[in-house]
Design a protein around this nucleic acid. Structure first.
Lengths: 112, 112
DNA sequence: CATACCATTTAGTATAACTATGTATTATTA
DNA sequence: TAATAATACATAGTTATACTAAATGGTATG
């Protein structure tokens, strides 16, 4: 496990919600998108556990479809998922502001 | 448990390191400082578990002192702790950039 | 026909924050 | 002075999340 893992807790799920909100998609593609967005260490197993969780919490609708000649499980946000995504970004705004303030204070101390 | 808890995982420890780096301090005071910085839900039990962890990992030096007529356990960063703090802010820079990019993409989708 | 890629599932592990409770001392105040 | 609040620390147990690792099966390609 790399040292950014703990920092991703509570964040990765939100990013996955965000990806699904853009267009209906499926696990394997989400994994590739995350990697393309810079989340390099994330493997498919991690994404599938998040998707299972989102489904269990009724934040997404799912549908198995055949596309490009393969069976895929497609995910889309329902209303509760959209609300959760909105709430996630609000939490992020709040928490990242607190962290950036803390970092500022840290810099002040080290440069005066 | 409130819904920012998971988001604080991997962050709170870094903020505590940051607080200790400013001046030698102790658990109870760190708790009050965190609350003053906007981390309102954090209680002393949480802070003490973090401090125990930092000690176990040899990131801090500790010393029991009598000040203001009470016994306190004072913490200070050692060299490893300073390095860890530096690495923590680097991780934060990296992860927060990824998250802000994801948020941007999310906004793009919703406003065009 | 072997290999790589696409696609999903899940049991088990590690870690971190939180809950809840207990202990003990010092300060305040009714 | 007895009760209460505030200061200060410790820790066992709970919950939640990301990760590991292994398994399954289909499709494309050389």
């Amino acid at each position: 496990m790399n040292n950014t893992t703990e920092m991703l807790k509570g964040l990765l799920e939100g990013v996955v919600l965000s990806i699904i909100s853009r267009k209906r998609t499926y696990g394997y593609e989400i994994t590739k998108q995350l990697q393309g967005m810079g989340f390099h260490g994330i493997v498919d197993g991690t994404v599938y556990t998040i998707l299972t969780r989102l489904e269990r919490r009724n934040l997404v609708t799912t549908k198995r479809c055949i596309e490009d000649n393969v069976v895929r499980k497609y995910y889309a946000l329902n209303k509760a998922g959209q609300n959760e995504l909105k709430a996630f970004w609000q939490r992020w705004e709040h928490v990242s502001e607190l962290l950036n303030n803390a970092k500022e204070q840290n810099n002040d101390k080290n440069h005066q």
